[in-house]
């Protein structure tokens, strides 16, 4: 029985490694070729060399240097980080407070509100994007940071995530805090959020990935090149006929790096987020 289990385990691990390699092939190809000039990329295309980066030389980072110095790509990445940071902070406050109200405060029809919020989770964001656009346009907020982040602050998925965690917080801690002269707002920021670090991290990670990977909404809101996000910027760079294939791959690699870092650092929170709600956002 033990030997059989061992063999099964080996087969399973081997299958998972093969599957990982299958998914990693394009990524490895992209990274390897991002260091090569176009001629070398074309020459290596049909050989195993296509997956092997060149030997480091003084021209090794040329594509990256070119992308970062000749285009506004660094600015776009900075913009995206700023939007993500703003949305993380505002999202935690707004969605966290809503989740707390649903979890702990008794108000009329609170269970119905929760149901409505859960129903909102199944509506794809693409279906309301036109309404959002018209709304932001009417408010004169097109091509502004506020116009971009405003419709993204409230997120039913994050409200639900917060609610699920807050509902299990012990009530007697709130009662003890009341006797310690801690008001409800202070309690939320100094007790509830620190006691729920995991969900705060999960929401932050999801928000970051959402903003970082978002293409459609920023492409509608922003027209000024100074405000573009990394994904839009990437499209602008790759669409430019003067951009080489190596530069394109370098730009894509740069866009991918933060996502890989976030996934590797916060995989636990991402899994917990998926598990605790039984669904995946987006």
């Amino acid at each position: 029985m033990k030997t059989r289990n061992k063999v099964l385990k080996i087969i399973l691990v081997a299958a998972m490694i093969l599957l990982s390699l299958f998914f990693l092939f394009p990524v490895v190809w992209m990274i390897a070729n991002s260091f090569k000039p176009d001629a070398e990329i074309t020459a290596d295309m049909n050989s195993v060399q296509a997956f092997i980066p060149p030997v480091p030389s003084e021209n090794f980072f040329d594509n990256y240097v070119s992308v970062l110095t000749n285009t506004n790509f660094l600015l776009y990445m900075g913009n995206t980080l700023l939007y993500a940071a703003l949305l993380i902070v505002l999202g935690i406050i707004v969605n966290g407070l809503a989740g707390y109200a649903l979890a702990k405060i008794k108000f009329p029809f609170s269970d119905k509100w929760l149901l409505i919020i859960m129903m909102l989770m199944i509506i794809p964001s693409e279906t309301i994007i036109t309404i959002n656009y018209l709304f932001i346009a009417k408010m004169g907020l097109l091509n502004t940071i506020f116009g971009y982040i405003l419709p993204m602050i409230v997120n039913p998925f994050n409200i639900f995530l917060f609610r699920q965690v807050f509902v299990s917080l012990p009530d007697d801690v709130y009662e003890a805090a009341q006797l310690d002269h801690c008001g409800p707002v202070k309690y939320f920021f100094t007790m509830v959020l620190p006691m729920s670090k995991t969900v705060v991290a999960t929401v932050s990670v999801f928000t970051f990935l959402n903003v970082w990977n978002d293409y459609l909404w920023p492409s509608l809101v922003f027209t000024s090149s100074d405000l573009l996000t990394a994904q839009i910027g990437l499209n602008a760079i790759t669409a430019n006929e003067n951009t080489t294939m190596g530069q394109t791959l370098a730009a894509i690699t740069l866009v991918t790096i933060p996502v890989i870092i976030i996934y590797s650092l916060f995989s636990k929170q991402i899994v917990e987020g998926v598990v605790s709600t039984g669904s995946k956002e987006g």
Binding site: D172, V173, E175, A176, L179, M191, M195, K197
Partner: peptide, 20 residues
């Protein structure tokens, strides 16, 4: 009167300490 203004202190069954 609000709990905090009653001049009381309370010890709870489950301690209710601030975990962080």
């Amino acid at each position: 009167v609000l709990p905090r203004d009653r001049g009381i202190a309370m010890v709870f069954q489950n301690y209710a300490l601030y975990p962080h």
